[in-house]
Simulated scan of single mutants.
Amino acid sequence: MIDAGAKIMITPCDADPSISAGQLTQPLGIPTLTLCGSAPVLTAAVGDVMFGTYPADNVQATAVANFAIAEGKKKVYLLTSPDSTYTANLPEYFGKVFEKKGGAVVGRGTFTMGQPDFSAEITNIKNLADQPDLIMTAAYEPDFPAFIQQLRGADVTVPVYGADAIGTPTVKGLGKLVDGVVYTAAGYAEPGSKLQAFNAAFAKYAGHAPESTYEVNGYEIGLILDQAVKTAGSDDPKAIRDAIAGLKDFDGITGKITYAGTDRMPLRPVALMRYEGGEGKHIQTMIPDAADVPAP
């Protein structure tokens, strides 16, 4: 794509391929935007051409931790995997905010992505002398469904919180098994909102409703680039990069998006959701206080 003359690059969600692509785009000054890539380390790992577009892991974790404290949760067990930046770091960001707000981390466990058996981790949880009143993990498919099925099968009723990667049809399809599970999204379609209108237009075009907020994230990338090119007044990559970096309170579909004054991971709303009766119910939408967000 670079050889063909690409002046903008859009990369996958995960930090690892986005960072790899950034090693090629950074020396050439090509602005690079990751679709739903949320690891806050990726912009620094690449350089000034790399932009996140989705709520960062540490921002999502802060929103979930603040909610957990508000709900009266005191003790958390963190379940992580070293196999991706997302699964390794997001629960730890949660733990930092949770402890800062007066909570305690009473245990930690790890898993390998793709493992079918979580019995050892579940046994560790059941045997903790100081039982948690919350389990926090960034596990996603197929790991999260396997974990929650085995956890509930072992009669462990501790609430489980996660993040955006479990707002999917597969997890929703688990029905009552995931009742009480809290997760995040980039927005919520309030009646009369731009997001509700987008979802309706998407369904008409695609023949089915959006499966997550990743679809609207992709659309918002187009809007961000459109505004950046208008501001730059050209298709020069450096001018576009500078215009993106200067965006402030840009009216997206999910709410206002700001890059100005950030490390190119946007300040933007986080919607908190909870599965109830097999449906994702909106709890609240917030932009966490920047002072509460832990450093990458």
Rank of each mutant, 00 (worst) to 15 (best):
I2G: 04
D3V: 13
G5C: 13
M9I: 14
D14F: 09
A15P: 01
A21R: 05
L24F: 13
P27F: 02
L35G: 03
C36Q: 11
C36P: 03
S38T: 14
V41K: 09
A44H: 06
A44Q: 11
A44K: 12
A44Y: 02
F51P: 03
G52V: 01
D57P: 01
A65D: 09
A68N: 08
V76Y: 07
L78I: 14
T80G: 00
T87D: 04
E92Y: 08
K100R: 11
G102M: 04
A104K: 15
R108N: 15
G109W: 04
T112N: 07
M113P: 00
G114K: 06
Q115K: 10
A120N: 02
T123I: 00
T123R: 07
I125A: 01
A129W: 02
Q131P: 07
A138E: 00
A138P: 03
A138H: 01
D143E: 12
P145M: 05
P145K: 06
I148D: 06
G153C: 11
A154P: 04
D155K: 09
V156H: 09
P159L: 09
Y161E: 07
A163Q: 02
A163P: 00
D164T: 03
D164M: 03
V171A: 12
K176Y: 02
L177T: 15
D179A: 03
G180Y: 10
A186H: 12
A186K: 10
Y188M: 07
A189I: 02
P191F: 10
F198V: 12
N199H: 08
N199G: 07
A201C: 05
A203S: 12
K204M: 10
G207E: 08
Y214S: 15
G218E: 09
Y219A: 12
L225R: 06
Q227K: 15
T231Y: 06
T231N: 14
D235W: 11
P237R: 08
P237A: 10
A239R: 02
A243F: 00
G246W: 07
G246P: 05
L247V: 05
D251M: 09
I253S: 01
G255R: 04
G255Y: 06
G255C: 04
Y259F: 11
A260N: 13
G261E: 13
T262P: 10
T262S: 11
D263Q: 14
R264G: 00
L267R: 13
M273V: 08
H282C: 10
M286Q: 14
M286N: 05
D289I: 05
A291W: 02
D292G: 06
